[in-house]
């Protein structure tokens, strides 16, 4: 494989790996809003160091290691912030790979589960995930207090998640 072919191969692998790398980083970084920034740093580093990758090995394993060290560096820099895991926990989590099932498998399961929810609950949940809606806005729209809405959303999302997990178990990858 010449260098150009190897670059194309790496671009494919890196593109495919994005959701998994993000999930891996989000876990270590406590779902910090900086997850995408760190992911981008990892992408840059993986590209810069692309010649270090042996295409006969599993790309994702190498990518996770790079993500792990980038995440460690981030946590070290931000160690004074409130929601940063302690180094021991980061190490434990860093050694655990994300679920092997793909983002689209989970998405299919979610579609099925969303369909099982009452329409009002579904709208509530999806409103919550719409970037333009705040809890306050949604609460006002549905005529409930923000606190009550938060509790309701918590339960709904828990239910949805349980359903997705069940669905994926019964339809293994």
């Amino acid at each position: 494989m010449d260098n150009k072919e190897q670059d194309i191969h790496l671009v494919n692998e890196l593109t495919k790996a994005q959701p998994k790398m993000r999930a891996y980083l989000a876990k270590i970084l406590a779902n910090s809003s900086s997850t995408d920034d760190v992911l981008q740093e990892c992408n840059k580093l993986l590209w810069i160091k692309r010649l270090d990758w042996d295409p006969t090995t599993i790309f994702l394993k190498w990518a996770y290691r790079v993500c792990y060290f980038q995440a460690m560096a981030y946590c070290r820099d931000k160690s004074r912030e409130k929601l940063i895991f302690n180094p021991e926990l980061i190490e434990i989590m860093g050694n655990e790979s994300p679920d092997e099932r793909t983002h689209s498998e989970r998405e299919i399961a979610m579609e099925k589960c969303l369909a099982k929810l009452k329409e009002v609950s579904r709208t509530l949940l999806l409103d919550r995930y719409s970037k333009e809606s705040t809890v306050e806005k949604i609460a006002r729209k549905h005529g409930i207090t923000p606190n009550a809405l938060s509790q309701k959303l918590l339960r709904l999302r828990y239910k949805l998640h349980e359903c997705i997990q069940e669905n994926m178990k019964s339809n293994p990858a």
Binding site: P19, A23, A26, N31, H103, E107, Y129, S130, R157, I164
Partner: peptide, 11 residues
């Protein structure tokens, strides 16, 4: 987290 990510991307 993965469910959360799927929900985020869904909408």
């Amino acid at each position: 987290l993965e469910t959360h990510a799927v929900l985020e991307s869904h909408v």
